[in-house]
């Protein structure tokens, strides 16, 4: 834990989140939305850093807090993104958010992928459904450091075609000449 940088939540007040604003809401599938957020405190936003695969605690104060993977890559400094499937009380409240709404975030938390150990090797990333959220962060990180790795393959599946997340990204990955992108659906 201690080796992972925690530029975000204050160490002295780990329980208290920071206000953030919803910049954009993207409807990914009928029950998954992605939210692009930025901390209201500009200096915090500037210093905010995390590692691919880490998570954050997203709050809609009044509804509650839940843990979600950060789905954007560390190189994205304008915003950070959570992708959320609507299932319970908190996620329903998250799905009701619109651009401009305020939320509260504690991030980053949790572990990362050992990407340093993978250098020079061929990487296959396999994900499914909303489980793609942390892998999106990972895969985009790998793309950002393309020269450090060998072949990059992404295999992504969902239950049905309408459950596929990140369609824009998928199109780009599909078009990319130096990555091998495979999609699959169950039905």
């Amino acid at each position: 834990m201690s080796t992972i940088p925690r530029e975000g939540i204050k160490a002295s007040e780990p329980l208290r989140p920071e206000p953030a604003t919803v910049l954009d809401v993207i409807t990914e599938t009928p029950n998954i939305k992605s939210l692009r957020l930025a901390f209201d405190d500009e200096s915090l936003m500037q210093s905010f850093s995390f590692l691919q695969g880490q998570v954050g605690q997203l709050s809609v104060p009044g509804a509650g807090e839940a843990t979600f993977a950060i789905a954007s890559p560390p190189s994205q400094r304008e915003y950070f993104q959570f992708s959320v499937m609507k299932t319970g009380v908190v996620t329903t409240a998250i799905h009701e958010l619109r651009a401009g709404d305020r939320v509260a975030v504690r991030a980053p938390m949790g572990n990362t992928f050992p990407t340093d150990d993978w250098k020079g090797r061929n990487i296959v990333v396999i994900g499914g459904g909303i489980g793609m959220a942390p892998l999106r962060s990972l895969f985009m990180y790998l793309e950002d450091h393309r020269d450090d790795y060998g072949g990059l393959q992404l295999i992504y599946g969902a239950r049905t075609p309408k459950d596929v997340c990140y369609l824009d990204d998928c199109r780009q990955w599909e078009a990319g000449s130096d990555i091998d992108f495979v999609t699959s659906v169950d039905t």
Partner: peptide
């Protein structure tokens, strides 16, 4: 209580204070 929060309306948007 871990913290309090308060929503308010500003001129152009909703504000949240922790």
């Amino acid at each position: 209580p871990l913290f309090s929060f308060s929503y308010s309306m500003a001129v152009d948007c909703e504000r949240l204070e922790i």
